[in-house]
Simulated scan of single mutants.
Amino acid sequence: MGMHWAKEHIITAAERNIVKGYEDGTFRPDGKITRSEFAVILGRALNVNLDQSGLSFKAGVSPFLQLLHKERAYSGF
């Protein structure tokens, strides 16, 4: 991350297990993320309990996105 403007925020989010970075241990703060990756981050930030949602993983759509769609909070995926 070097001197990235969001470095301190990224460290805080990582300490709170909201973001975990990539498998190689890096963070790519200026990289693009997928809808599924965003859904995971948002779910962790909001402490969403997917185990009790009754949703399952289908065709690459994250359970959190399924929950948002079910609650009509998100459309267009």
Results as ranks from 00 to 15, higher is better:
residue 37 E to S: 06
residue 22 Y to C: 00
residue 73 A to H: 10
residue 57 F to H: 14
residue 27 F to V: 02
residue 7 K to G: 05
residue 43 G to Q: 06
residue 56 S to L: 07
residue 50 L to Y: 04
residue 51 D to W: 01
residue 34 T to Q: 09
residue 35 R to N: 04
residue 5 W to D: 10
residue 44 R to E: 14
residue 54 G to D: 08
residue 38 F to H: 09
residue 10 I to D: 06
residue 65 L to A: 10
residue 74 Y to P: 02
residue 41 I to R: 01
residue 70 K to S: 13
residue 28 R to S: 03
residue 55 L to N: 01
residue 47 N to W: 03
residue 63 P to R: 06
residue 67 L to H: 05
residue 68 L to T: 13
residue 67 L to G: 03
residue 9 H to D: 09
residue 62 S to E: 02
residue 72 R to Y: 09
residue 45 A to E: 13
residue 17 N to M: 11
residue 51 D to Q: 09
residue 43 G to T: 04
residue 8 E to L: 08
residue 11 I to C: 04
residue 77 F to K: 10
residue 26 T to M: 04
residue 60 G to Y: 12
residue 52 Q to Y: 09
residue 57 F to E: 15
residue 46 L to G: 10
residue 33 I to D: 05
residue 52 Q to R: 12
residue 30 D to G: 09
residue 9 H to N: 03
residue 17 N to D: 14
residue 22 Y to F: 08
residue 5 W to V: 06
residue 6 A to V: 03
residue 27 F to A: 00
residue 67 L to S: 01
residue 59 A to R: 12
residue 47 N to K: 15
residue 73 A to V: 13
residue 77 F to W: 13
residue 34 T to N: 08
residue 62 S to W: 01
residue 13 A to G: 07
residue 15 E to G: 11
residue 17 N to V: 06
residue 64 F to D: 00
residue 27 F to E: 00
residue 10 I to L: 11
residue 71 E to V: 09
residue 31 G to C: 05
residue 18 I to Y: 08
residue 49 N to W: 01
residue 1 M to H: 07
residue 55 L to S: 00
residue 58 K to H: 10
residue 46 L to V: 11
residue 56 S to D: 09
residue 42 L to M: 15
residue 55 L to F: 08
residue 58 K to G: 04
residue 64 F to R: 00
residue 55 L to Y: 00
residue 26 T to N: 06
residue 65 L to F: 06
residue 4 H to T: 05
residue 54 G to K: 02
residue 52 Q to A: 15
residue 3 M to A: 13
residue 76 G to Q: 09
residue 8 E to P: 01
residue 67 L to T: 02
residue 53 S to E: 08
residue 17 N to S: 12
residue 41 I to G: 00
residue 39 A to S: 15
residue 72 R to L: 11
residue 75 S to I: 11
residue 11 I to L: 12
residue 39 A to F: 04
residue 63 P to T: 07
residue 24 D to K: 00
residue 55 L to C: 09
residue 30 D to S: 10
residue 57 F to I: 14
residue 36 S to I: 02
residue 30 D to Y: 10
residue 13 A to T: 02
